[in-house]
């Protein structure tokens, strides 16, 4: 079965991203497909490459990165939500003339069309909200 997953809560502010991560692992373990994970609203902070939690806490952004590398996941961060909140890739940093960028390379900034397309092409969309 084809799943897509939506995360709207920020890691460390809500449990949403951590729950979505666990759910995604089970989806893949059981042999299903994840078409896309879409990070929206405060969920965009999961895409930060600069999160530095204490060593005895889970590093949620890097756990997403690890899962994405292992399973070739499409991790999409909503561009409008992200740019507002200061989560930028190199291209957007240039576009908005900002001095740095912080989107982890395993995530992609893209539009809400990616969420709608995921809804059209997936059998199930599961939202982890905050």
């Amino acid at each position: 079965m084809i799943f897509s997953i939506v995360v709207t809560g920020a890691p460390y502010s809500s449990q949403a991203s951590a729950s979505a991560l666990q759910f995604s692992r089970s989806v893949l373990k059981l042999g299903h497909t994840i078409h896309r994970v879409f990070f929206y609203a405060d969920g965009v902070h999961s895409g930060s490459a600069l999160a530095a939690p204490p060593q005895d806490e889970a590093n949620i952004p890097s756990e997403w990165t690890a899962l994405a590398c292992e399973h070739d996941l499409d991790l999409v961060v909503c561009i409008a939500a992200a740019v507002r909140r200061g989560v930028l890739d190199e291209n957007e940093a240039r576009r908005y003339e900002k001095s740095g960028h912080n989107l982890s390379p395993d995530f992609t900034l893209s539009g809400l069309g990616q969420l709608v397309e995921a809804g059209i092409l997936s059998d199930r969309v599961v939202t982890f909200g905050a």
Partner: peptide, 20 residues
């Protein structure tokens, strides 16, 4: 149930609606 059970329920039911 565990997360595997959560995934199985998501498959068994036609859609998932989140309330938060």
């Amino acid at each position: 149930i565990g997360y595997d059970g959560f995934v199985e329920l998501s498959c068994r039911y036609g859609k998932v609606v989140s309330w938060f």
